[in-house]
């Protein structure tokens, strides 16, 4: 590996981490604003113009709070929990193609950190490790509500991982590749996968809500039943890590949805305008972020519209409805390709 590429990748990695953190930070602000607007309120508007400095104020508050580790908690694991949650949330951004190829001084640089040929599976692996953050944190708190929350989180995430994986299979059948970069490249020119896999998209979307523990699937932390669930005993920045990890997960899920089903950095009619390739790449990245923001908004929109599921309804939906639907989707897609390739 030559030095320029090495430096470029390092810088790009830092940029992605920074962007992830900033987007997650402003998602907290966005969430409060969206919630307020949907309830005919104004939302935070005191810190800075339109309350734009609110996330910074919240962050300072989080840092200043007293750090409490309960006496009966398992200290080692208590600290490990939020660390895992944060780390796995941040790691997923590595495989997402944030843009096309940018040419600087005659050299081509890809706007993706690692083009794994099993990109989707990598995302799944990170999600499945992310469960540990919640489970370990909830158990180590030595609090019954935290334990209940973590058990709910674990069983919910395992259940919906299955349906999510199966919904992806139909997509892989159409694209014939597991590499996210290739999947995006195939969707060039409005051949977005959502038109070919509407059912798979719907299942994936529902599962994404469940995997990120967002409403209406926020049972692991429902205040009315569990006083905050797995992070009941957490305070200060450890709590901040859990909350932050949730928003990072939301950002990454939105990015994955946009990549897999909505053409990633592709935008319609880009070839007809006739811009320079670098401009096309930058515009594509901009457009990609617009898609991501739309999905983040969708996450919030749903959260402030739908009430929380009951636990048995959640399990019924996952195992008895989404799983069979996903299997049906696979069979239908397979049959379609089998018969079209015969003729």
């Amino acid at each position: 590996m030559d030095l320029t590429l090495y430096i470029y990748k390092t810088i790009f990695l830092f940029i992605i981490l920074l962007v992830t953190l900033v987007v997650a930070m402003y998602s907290t602000y966005g969430e409060r604003k969206v919630a307020a607007f949907m309830q005919d309120r104004r939302g935070p508007n005191r810190a800075g113009p339109f309350g734009l400095l609110q996330p910074i104020a919240d962050g300072v508050k989080m840092f200043m709070k007293e750090e409490i580790i309960p006496l009966s908690a398992n200290k080692k694991l208590f600290i490990l929990g939020p660390s895992i949650a944060m780390t796995t949330a941040m790691l997923t951004g590595v495989v997402i193609p944030w843009g096309g190829i940018i040419t600087i001084a005659g050299r081509e640089f890809s706007m993706q950190i690692a083009d794994l040929n099993i990109g989707i599976l990598y995302v799944f692996a990170m999600v499945s490790i992310g469960v540990y953050g919640i489970m370990i944190g909830g158990w180590a708190s030595n609090n019954k509500y935290a334990l209940l929350g973590s058990i709910r989180a674990a069983s919910q995430m395992i259940s919906y991982e299955l349906a999510m994986g199966l919904s992806i299979v139909g997509l892989i059948l159409t694209t014939g590749s597991l590499s996210l970069n290739e999947i995006v490249a195939q969707q060039h020119g409005m051949h977005w996968n959502v038109f070919y896999q509407p059912l798979g998209f719907l299942i994936f979307l529902v599962c994404a809500f469940a995997e990120t523990n967002r409403a209406p699937f926020d049972l692991p932390e429902c205040e009315t039943e569990l006083i905050g669930g797995y992070h009941t005993e957490y305070s200060s920045m450890k709590l901040g890590f859990y909350l932050f990890a949730e928003y990072i997960n939301m950002f990454i899920s939105s990015a994955v949805i946009a990549t897999l089903y909505f053409g990633g950095y592709n935008m319609p009619f880009i070839d007809q305008i006739g811009l320079s390739p670098n401009m096309v790449t930058l515009l594509g990245t901009f457009f990609f972020f617009m898609k991501i923001f739309f999905f983040i908004f969708l996450f919030m929109w749903i959260r402030w519209t739908l009430p929380r599921f009951r636990y048995d309804q959640l399990m019924n939906l996952g195992w008895k409805k989404l799983m069979p639907l996903a299997i049906f989707n696979i069979m239908a897609t397979g049959a379609y390709y089998y018969f079209t390739e015969l003729t």
């Binding site: 969206v34 607007f37 949907m38 309830q39 005919d40 309120r41 104004r42 508007n45 929109w301 749903i302 402030w304 519209t305 739908l306």
Partner: peptide, 21 residues
């Protein structure tokens, strides 16, 4: 039903805010 609910919330999103500064 979900879409109906979402249309209600999005209508409120653009409605004039009741609270005052």
């Amino acid at each position: 039903a979900i879409l109906k609910g979402m249309s209600i919330t999005i209508r409120h999103f653009f409605r004039k805010k009741i609270s005052i500064n």
